[in-house]
Simulated assay, not measured.
Amino acid sequence: MAVLGSRTTDEDLSGVLPALRRPHLDYFRLFYADTALFGSATGLPASLAFFGADHLVFATDAPFGPLPETLAAIDTLDLTEAQRHAVLHGNAERLLRL
């Protein structure tokens, strides 16, 4: 972030950082991550730690990603029942206003 705007030749972005009202990393935490890791449980704890259970949504990349393995990977997370519900469908329902 220290070089933001210094490597762009067609647009002056030098005012972006001073205009932020909070640290730039806080804005990344507003994104939603998904569980589509082809059944791998390796990245899920990091996603959960960074985004939180309220910004993690279930996904599999089906039909290419394995559904049972993705569900098993989610089961390895230390989630409360409410957090598990949120990850599996509650967050998507809220995000998509369903």
Score class of each variant (00 low, 15 high):
A2N: 12
A2I: 02
A2R: 15
V3D: 13
L4I: 15
G5N: 06
G5W: 02
R7D: 09
T9I: 07
T9Q: 14
D10C: 10
D10T: 13
D10H: 15
D12K: 01
D12N: 15
S14R: 14
S14W: 00
S14A: 12
G15L: 02
G15D: 13
V16L: 14
V16D: 06
L17N: 14
L17P: 00
L17G: 02
P18S: 02
L20S: 10
L20Y: 11
R21N: 11
H24I: 15
H24G: 07
L25R: 14
F28S: 11
R29I: 00
F31D: 10
Y32C: 06
D34T: 12
D34R: 01
D34N: 09
T35G: 03
T35A: 03
A36Q: 06
A36S: 12
L37M: 15
L37N: 12
F38V: 08
G39D: 01
S40P: 04
S40W: 02
S40A: 11
A41T: 02
T42W: 03
G43F: 10
G43N: 07
L44A: 04
S47K: 13
L48S: 09
L48P: 09
L48H: 10
A49E: 15
F51D: 08
G52D: 09
A53L: 03
A53S: 15
D54S: 15
D54V: 00
H55E: 06
D61L: 03
D61R: 01
D61V: 02
D61E: 10
A62I: 06
A62N: 08
F64E: 06
F64I: 08
G65L: 03
G65N: 08
P66M: 01
P66S: 14
L67N: 08
P68K: 02
E69Y: 00
E69G: 03
L71C: 04
I74L: 03
I74S: 04
T76Y: 01
T76R: 05
L79E: 08
E81Q: 09
A82T: 14
A82V: 11
Q83A: 14
V87H: 01
L88W: 06
L88R: 12
H89I: 01
G90Q: 07
G90W: 12
A92H: 06
A92I: 05
E93M: 11
E93W: 01
E93D: 13
R94A: 14
L95S: 02
L96H: 10
R97F: 00
L98I: 14
